Each structure stands twice: as C-alpha cells, then as structure tokens.
Amino acid sequence: MSADVAVLGAGMHPWGKWGRSFVSYGRAAAREALADAGLDWRDVDAIVGADTVRGGYPGYVAGATFAQALGWQGARVTSVYAACASGAQAIGAARAQILAGLADVVLVVGADAAPKGFFAPAGGNRPDDPDWLRFRVLGATNPAYFALYARRRMALHGDTVEDFAQVKVKNAAAGALNPRARYRKRVSAEEVAASAVVADPLRLLDICATSDGGAALVLSSVEFARRHGRSDPVRIRAVSTVTPVYPKTVLDLPDIATDSAVAVSPVAHSFRASIARAAYEEAGIGPEDLSLAEVYDLSTALELEWYEDIGLCPMGEGAKLVREGATALGGRTPVNASGGLASFGEAVPAQAIAQVCELTWQLRGTAGDRQVAGARVGITANQGLFGHGSAVVAVR
C-alpha cells in the first residue's frame, strides 16, 4: 500500500499581532483550506488540532476547540502537543488515520496568539523539564540558547556574524514577496549589524519574533483525491517524528572529537540530522533530490546548522552555502522561500503546518513571485525541545 496521502487544500491566516483568540486564526485558516480543497466542513471525517498551551484550556484540546468553532458535525477529533513540532505531529496523526482506512478526509489545524517577548514555560514549576530548568536555574531564555549555538559554530567552523546576517538578508528578501508574511521589507547586512545586541553574537534581526497566526491543511487518501478530480495532487510521502537514540542523550551536539574539516555524512552527528535521515529513508529520496526546503530558523545561525542536518552540505559548510547564494531564491536549493520565521515570527503550533502549506504552493507552481522553478520535491524540518523532532517530505 502506498504511504502517500494527498494535500487537497492549504490555508493560512496571515501572521502578525492581531490581538484576537487563536481560535479565530485557526478557523480562518481551516475555512481557506476547505475552500481550496473544494470541500465543505461536513465532508471532513476527522480533525486534528495542534495544541497551544498558552491558550488556556481551549488550547490544550485544540482539535475539539476548532471542531466547535467550525460547527459540531460529528468528526473524529485528535489533539496533539509537541512544542515546535506540534504541527508536524498533527500531520502525522492525520496521515496515520487515512492510511489505516479510518478516514478519507482529515483537516489539520494549528494556531497561536503568542505573547510578546520571551516564551516562558507554561504550567508552573516543572523541575523535571529541561526547558524550565534552563530558564529558572541558568536564566537562559531562548535567545541565550540560540547564541550558544552561534558561538559554537564560530568556534568550530569559523562562521562569522556577517554570515549570520546574510541569512536574514536572504529570508527577508523572500518574505518581501510573500503576502502572508508579517515582515515584508528587505533588510541589508548593515541593518542587521546596526540592530541591538540581544544575546552576543546575535542581534535583534538575527532572532525570530513571536507572532499570531494560523495554518491548516486538508489531507485525503490519494484514491479519494482522484475520485474527486485531483489526478496529480501534491502528496505527503514521509512524516518523521523520531526521538533521540540512547546513548546519544545530548540532543543536538555534534561529535566534538570529529575533525570538522573532514567531509562526513551530514546526517551522522546530531539528533536533528536523524530527523531528516528518517524522512529521507521513508520517502526513498535523498538531499540531492530536493527542490527546496523549509527549516525552523529560530535564529540565523540555527538555519546554517539545518543546511548540514538536512544534508545540503557536509558539517561546517553551511555558511559557504549562504555565501554562494545556493539557498536563496534562484539558487541550487532554496531554503525558506516563504521567508521563514525571520519574516513570519513564531506561532508555535501553526509553524510546521505553515511549512507544508508553503511546500504545497511551491509544488503546485502557485507561489507567485517567490516560485521555485520546477519544484517537485520539498522537505520541512524543525525540532521541539524534549526530544520532539519533525520533518515532512512532499512531492509532486
């Protein structure tokens, strides 16, 4: 049996700071996805909601919350929480129901109304949560965490702050072409350098904002899609939600003893790389087959690390790719053609779904001015803390 499921519809509520409930963003995205699919909400067999714990109790049961907002119609309901990987795990849950024959059509929705500023762990004291510990014991907010990654890249691979700035320049140029992005202004390297230092060596424009937004997908079996006139739909071929492997319990550090100048398999040294490797193996493809990628650029330095983790280059050569323009629009393998988190900001449970929306539009050839020519295969990748990984492969 084919492991593919069809993407019949994709929808988004634009990212920004709108001051409304996450429910309104998710409902708007769902309605757009349903319209794109040419289906009515009553045609949906199941709904999977990506949770937002900052939204109070309705956010903890997002599947039921969105079902209520769209109008009770008896759909099977699932809610998923996996931090930044919530959206991809929601896609995985929907795909499993379709492949198991439990549903022909599943709606996947994620939305957030993020507070301004640093994300604090929700739910009170959690001394068994490493996220809580680094906030409470170390005082290490997310930007400090990102800065440690950046400093390590500078020490191990010789990356520079100028390299990091070029990632922002690239993503801002793509975001300027995306009507759904929050920030639609090109940025120069000089403007990045002139922005305030947040956590050395990262500046304000090196780090993503927090945003409101929503994204949704209508998924179906390939057979259902063909019966309803979609003979060549975009298909999801793999969803990787792997966890680390013992004894590699340091989630995402490379083997420091390895000579970083030696070209090694880019999927051999980190938890994040194992996420991509599992997706490639399931899909039967490799990095060389990619037309584009959407990765979680929480910071500019972290995007460079993703290049290596998804196999676009050997470890330590991410900065070289951005210098060469290989990951820009028009380059060999564009990364974050949507503009990435640099242009959207982070609406946590929606983000991984939004990444697949972008792949869908690109593979359909409907991405407008940011269209990647001849796009046929794409991958998304992100990591939620506490061992939540996610990658999705879509093909046409």
Rank of each mutant, 00 (worst) to 15 (best):
S265K: 08
S265L: 10
S265I: 07
S265W: 15
P266L: 05
P266D: 06
P266R: 01
P266W: 04
V267P: 01
V267G: 07
V267M: 09
V267Y: 10
V267S: 10
V267D: 04
V267L: 15
A268H: 13
A268F: 14
A268Y: 15
A268G: 09
H269M: 14
H269W: 13
H269Q: 11
H269F: 14
H269N: 11
H269R: 08
H269V: 04
H269Y: 12
S270T: 15
S270E: 08
S270W: 06
F271A: 00
F271G: 04
F271V: 01
F271C: 09
F271W: 12
F271Q: 00
F271P: 00
R272V: 00
R272P: 09
R272H: 05
R272S: 10
R272M: 04
A273V: 12
A273P: 06
A273Q: 11
A273S: 14
A273G: 12
A273K: 03
A273T: 10
S274Q: 06
S274G: 07
S274C: 02
S274V: 02
S274E: 02
I275P: 00
I275A: 08
I275H: 03
I275L: 04
I275W: 02
I275E: 01
A276N: 05
A276P: 14
A276F: 00
R277N: 02
R277Q: 14
R277D: 03
R277W: 11
R277G: 04
A278M: 07
A278D: 02
A278S: 06
A278H: 06
A278V: 02
A278N: 04
A279P: 07
A279V: 12
A279I: 08
A279T: 13
A279N: 10
A279S: 13
Y280P: 02
Y280D: 12
Y280A: 04
Y280T: 11
Y280G: 07
E281D: 15
E281L: 09
E282V: 14
E282Q: 15
E282G: 15
E282S: 14
A283L: 09
A283I: 14
A283Q: 14
A283V: 15
G284P: 04
G284S: 05
G284A: 08
G284W: 07
I285Q: 05
I285A: 03
I285R: 07
I285G: 03
G286E: 04
G286K: 04
G286I: 04
G286F: 04
P287M: 03
E288S: 11
E288H: 14
E288K: 13
E288G: 14
D289R: 11
D289W: 02
D289S: 08
D289Q: 10
D289G: 09
D289Y: 03
D289E: 12
L290P: 05
L290H: 13
L290M: 08
L290N: 04
L290D: 09
L290E: 12
S291W: 01
S291G: 15
S291D: 08
S291R: 11
L292P: 03
L292E: 05
L292R: 09
L292Q: 01
L292V: 07
A293M: 05
A293C: 11
A293G: 02
A293W: 08
A293Q: 10
A293N: 12
A293F: 06
E294R: 07
E294I: 06
E294L: 01
E294Y: 11
E294M: 06
E294T: 13
V295P: 00
V295Y: 02
V295C: 03
V295L: 00
V295F: 00
V295A: 00
V295I: 14
